[in-house]
Design a protein around this nucleic acid. Structure first.
Length: 121
DNA sequence: CGGCTGACGACCT
DNA sequence: GAGGTCGCCAGCC
């Protein structure tokens, strides 16, 4: 499929401040709610950069502890760390503390109901 | 200046 | 459901 600006948005408006723009959006997700990587990308007006949102959160510095990275999951409502137990357990515990339950397959229960609607920023 | 390598998502077989 | 393709970008060799 060729690149379609109508569908994917402009190519190169993701600049240096991209990581920080991602963090700003993620900060808006309230306790007890969830958003997807794609939701965060969409709130930035860049629907096609869900992957970069994941990379931005992977690069989140420790000192930015006001960014609730654990409230961001994939489009199927699953944690994205299944496989390596450390990060997975970390995220699972943080969500559990907010009253969010995860089934044995890493899927959030009531995912669609908990999903927070991020307005474009 | 290459060439990796990452927490994704939509779409197709 | 499982597997592959492609689009996306920053940072670090």
């Amino acid at each position: 499929m060729p690149y379609d600006p109508e569908q994917h948005g402009p190519r190169r408006i993701v600049g240096e401040g991209f990581h920080n723009r991602v963090y700003e959006v993620v900060r808006r997700i309230p306790c007890g709610s969830i958003a997807t990587y794609g939701d965060v990308a969409g709130a930035l007006g860049l629907r096609s950069v869900a992957r970069q949102v994941g990379f931005a959160l992977a690069a989140l510095p420790d000192h930015l502890d006001d960014v609730p990275w654990h409230r961001v999951v994939n489009a199927r409502g699953e944690l994205s760390h299944r496989g390596d137990s450390g990060p997975y357990e970390n995220q699972r515990q943080l969500l559990l503390q907010e009253g969010i339950e995860i089934n044995e397959r890493g899927r959030i229960l009531m995912f669609e109901e908990l999903r927070f609607v991020l307005d474009p920023s």
